[in-house]
């Protein structure tokens, strides 16, 4: 968002509800499906007010049946509606991967353009005390599927703009938010605005190292950059925003300036977001020093001590950057 655009401070959930409200008004075919999104207003109150304005035919509470929810959303989208399916926890996307991956992502190709599935699956990733099956970040799985777009905002303004684009996209989009984002507030443009997919954002300019991240991890990464600055290391923070498509150009330009890249994610490292961007940026910047920071290869416990111990935080991100920049340390990726 350009800094000069008039904006008002809103909660993350308000930004999502506003994007949904505007798009529901613009497109009468848009249907919302999800658990507890009607009178309850959504688990995070991000659907608040929508049932009252649009009624139960367009804002539909569903049974706990993620596979059928996404299947219905995909089928309805393929048949001329536009749909958003809310999957409360990203972990529960797993039973719904069949309609999403085997049907929606293939549909345009396999029918030679006769059908497409303009469906948004909105889901909430990440750890916040809810344990091994309610905490995972599975974005990298989805990046592996041709035909899926994947976006993950870190702020109310981006959530608003990216959700607007998702709700106008021609094919399936997975919109990944994060439990820790919902209590946050931030500027949301007063005028209606959409943020295109495939555009990373430089959140902090720096000279010595590029820290690349997405979603909630943007916040610990910015904190790490601030602590590195105190130690005389100038870190540039690039927030991906869109994971598929990826904005390698912006990342590579940053990495070419700094000569070092630390890829940060809350999810697992093997075949992860960081592995992908490190490789792709290295194709553009061959002499680049790269490192990755992610979760330890263990389940994420609901025990707060164990949860914190398994996940990246600002000190670990800063430590990875310092190791990378120490000439004797070499490459750690």
């Amino acid at each position: 968002m350009p800094p000069e655009a008039p904006a008002t401070r809103r909660f993350f959930r308000e930004a999502i509800a506003r994007a949904l409200r505007e798009e529901m008004r613009r497109d009468p075919s848009l249907l919302l499906l999800g658990q507890d999104i009607g009178a309850f207003g959504g688990p995070y109150r991000d659907f608040e007010g929508l049932l009252a304005e649009f009624g139960p035919a367009r804002v539909r509470d569903t049974p706990v049946a993620e596979a059928a929810m996404v299947g219905l959303g995909v089928g309805a989208a393929a048949a001329g509606a536009r749909t958003l399916v809310a999957i409360t926890y990203m972990d529960f996307l797993m039973p719904a991967l069949d309609p999403l991956v085997n049907y929606a992502a293939k549909l345009r190709f396999k029918t030679a353009g006769q059908l497409a599935a303009p469906v948004v699956v909105k889901t909430t990733a990440g750890a916040k005390g809810q344990g091994v099956a309610h905490s995972q970040c599975l974005e990298a799985w989805l990046m592996n599927v041709p035909g899926l777009a994947v976006v993950a905002p870190s702020s109310p303004g981006d959530a608003y703009g990216l959700l607007k684009t998702a709700l106008r996209a021609p094919g399936p989009v997975v919109f990944v938010d994060h439990k820790r984002l919902f209590p946050m507030a931030g500027p949301v443009p007063d005028a209606e605005a959409a943020i295109p997919f495939g555009l990373a954002a430089i959140r902090r300019a720096g000279r010595d190292v590029t820290l690349a991240t997405h979603g909630w991890m943007t916040h610990p990464t910015l904190a790490a950059a601030a602590s590195l600055a105190e130690a005389g290391i100038s870190a540039e923070v690039v927030e991906l925003r869109s994971l598929a498509p990826l904005d390698i150009e912006t990342l590579a330009a940053s990495a070419a300036r700094t000569g070092a890249l630390v890829a940060v994610e809350e999810g697992q490292l093997p075949c992860g977001v960081g592995a992908e961007i490190a490789f792709r940026v290295r194709e553009c910047v061959p002499a680049l020093a790269v490192a990755r920071v992610g979760a330890r290869p263990v389940p994420v416990s609901s025990n707060p001590v164990l949860e914190a111990a398994s996940l990246p935080d600002a000190p670990r991100i800063a430590a990875a950057a310092r190791r990378l920049l120490r000439p004797s340390a070499g490459e750690t990726a």
């Binding site: 089928g75 309805a76 749909t83 049907y103």
Partner: peptide, 16 residues
């Protein structure tokens, strides 16, 4: 795999 997809097509019919 086509069961819930078909229900979605039927939902689009109903909604429209």
């Amino acid at each position: 795999g086509n069961l819930s997809i078909a229900a979605g097509v039927a939902l689009a019919f109903q909604a429209a």
